[in-house]
Structures are given as structure tokens and as C-alpha cells.
Computed example of a mutant assay.
Amino acid sequence: MTICSYATFDDPGSDDEIEPVLAAWREAGIDGRAERWDDPAADWSAYDAVIVRSVWDYILRREEFLAWARAVESVTRLLNPYAVLEVNTDKTYLRNLGVPVVPTHWSSEDLPDWPEYVVKPTVSGGARDTTRTAGREQAGALAAALEAAGRTPMVQPYLDMVESEGETSLLYFNRRFSHAVRRNPMLAPGLAPGATLDDARARLRPPAPDQVELAEKALAAVPHALLYARVDLVRLSDGSPAVMELELTEPSLFLHHEPGAAARFAGALRELL
């Protein structure tokens, strides 16, 4: 039997996708075991593949995580592969994606004149260290503080349309579309600090044709095997879609929202192996 590791972190109880994934893997003839990515006792060479999933603490020690990924890939199959993780764990990849993305300013100097700003570091997740402000001076100060700490800032306009339109996340397994959800942004009014994606009221949403076209163009820019991908899109003020993030490292896959999604995920893994 094929044996795969589901790489998680030291709080696996916060990942409600582990059990449905492992069950779907069993149905597909794959013996799956959840293990901490930083467990020094883990023998990664014992697996046919290591699947990077809820490694949500990597943002606190990215270099250590990448060193781990490189070492794992030297002894077994890593999905998504190291070359993807190295690029995708720093959001500066958006500069080179080659498709429309949310307008982004990458320093504290000469900020554009926007009604509201969102400031965050390029290595982050779950709205950690992310601030929304209407003040240009405050936005610049926040970005400068990130630079002083040795971090690269991202300064973006706050898009009012996300409060009515929401964000659309398209899920792909082995580059095939599985399902899409609509979710409210973390910084929308009424959401508590630290809210999770499920707290943000995700629900199934059929994507529009222009969203599918953009998502698939974004995926086409990645020349590596992709077991999973989540393309997060928003609409700009002119109504056109733009990529907010191309999640290829540890995204929630919203498997509970779509019957059959876990089975499709397992089937994609089976194909790649």
C-alpha cells in the first residue's frame, strides 16, 4: 500500500480537514498519517510522499521550514514541491505572476493616494500583522516599522467591493477545478480579530467565467506539479477580477463545503504518485 504523510504543525486539532482527507486517502488505497513537519523523530524517507498541509507556523520560521522541505525532497516526493514552496511562502511572488493582481506598493516611501490602506508583511498568514487604516501617514509608518524589523511590507488599497462581493477562492487538485467558495475578507466590519476563514462565513459559489479564466492563467505561470492550489480573487472597482493570493503552500481547502471534494483530492494524489 502507498504510504503518505500529512504534514501539519503542533496544533493539529485546529485543522478540521485532517480526518476527511485521511479517510478519503484510505478509500483511494493510500495509508495516510498526520505528523508534525518539525518532529525530529519523523522518518520522512519511510513515506512514498509527504503532503504539505497545515504547516501554519512556518510564517514564524520560514527559513527553518524551507530547509526542512529541501531535506524531505531529497529522500521522498514532496507535494507541493520545494521549488513551489520557496517562492510561494513570500508574497513578493505576486510581482512576477504575470496576471492582474491587487495593486500593491512594496515599500514605505511614496505611497499612492488611496482612500484606505491595508498594510502587511510579505511573509504572513491568516491576517497576522495586517492592519487596515485610512491614514496615509499611518500606513507609511506601519510599512516603515516592518522594514525596520527586516521584513518586506505590502501596502494595498482596501477594496470596498469585498464587503458586498466578497472574495472568491477557486480550488484545484492536480490543476483540475474542484469547487469554489465565497468568503468575507478578514478585515471587513463585524469580524473579530483573529477570525478564521470559516468564521468569515465561507459558502459555495459558482465562479464566473472571467474568474476561471484568470485563475487558470495564474496556475499556468507555475511550471511545477501542483497537488493542490487555491486562487483567491477579488473584483476591483471597475469590476475586473484580480488575484489577491495564489495559495500553494498550506491553504484551507474548504473540503467540508463540497461533497466529493476530499475524494477528488485523494484521486489527484493517486494520479501524481
Rank of each mutant, 00 (worst) to 15 (best):
Q138H: 08
P12D: 02
T130Y: 11
L170V: 03
E116L: 09
H179R: 00
A41P: 04
A83E: 15
A220W: 01
Y6H: 05
L94R: 08
E73D: 14
V21M: 15
L22A: 00
A215E: 02
K217T: 00
L219E: 06
S74T: 08
D113R: 06
W114E: 11
S108Q: 04
V87I: 12
Q138G: 00
P241Y: 10
R151V: 02
W56T: 01
T168E: 11
T92A: 12
L171R: 02
P121D: 10
Q156H: 12
P115G: 15
G260V: 08
V118N: 03
A221N: 05
A144I: 08
V102R: 01
E35L: 15
H224W: 14
V21P: 04
P100A: 10
R176G: 09
L233D: 03
P189N: 06
G166M: 12
P193Q: 06
E64M: 13
A262D: 08
R33P: 00
R70V: 11
V123D: 08
P81D: 14
L60D: 15
A49G: 09
A34K: 08
V102N: 01
V118S: 09
A23K: 13
T133N: 07
R136T: 12
F177L: 02
A266V: 11
S14C: 00
E247A: 03
A200L: 13
T76I: 09
E247C: 04
W25Y: 14
P241M: 14
S178E: 03
L269W: 11
T196C: 04
G194M: 05
I59M: 13
E247G: 05
E147R: 14
Y58S: 01
V222K: 03
L78R: 11
L219Y: 04
A192L: 08
K91A: 06
A141W: 04
D16Q: 11
E167S: 09
R176H: 10
T89H: 10
A200N: 06
L255Q: 09
R26W: 09
A220C: 03
S5F: 15
E245P: 06
T168Q: 04
R136S: 10
L97T: 00
W106A: 05
V102Y: 06
A69R: 05
I59W: 10
V52Y: 13
P81S: 14
T130W: 07
P153L: 12
S252G: 03
F173P: 00
R183N: 09
A7I: 08
R230S: 05
F65P: 11
A218D: 06
P209T: 07
L79E: 14
V72A: 15
P259S: 00
P259W: 00
Q138W: 14
A149F: 01
A49R: 03
M186Y: 15
P103K: 07
P209I: 11
S240R: 15
E258W: 10
R36V: 04
V181S: 02
T8V: 11
R270A: 13
W37I: 09
R270P: 02
A180N: 07
G267L: 07
P189F: 07
W114I: 14
N184Y: 15
L146P: 05
F173W: 04
M244V: 14
T8W: 14
L142H: 01
P20V: 02
V75R: 15
A145L: 07
A141K: 13
Q156E: 08
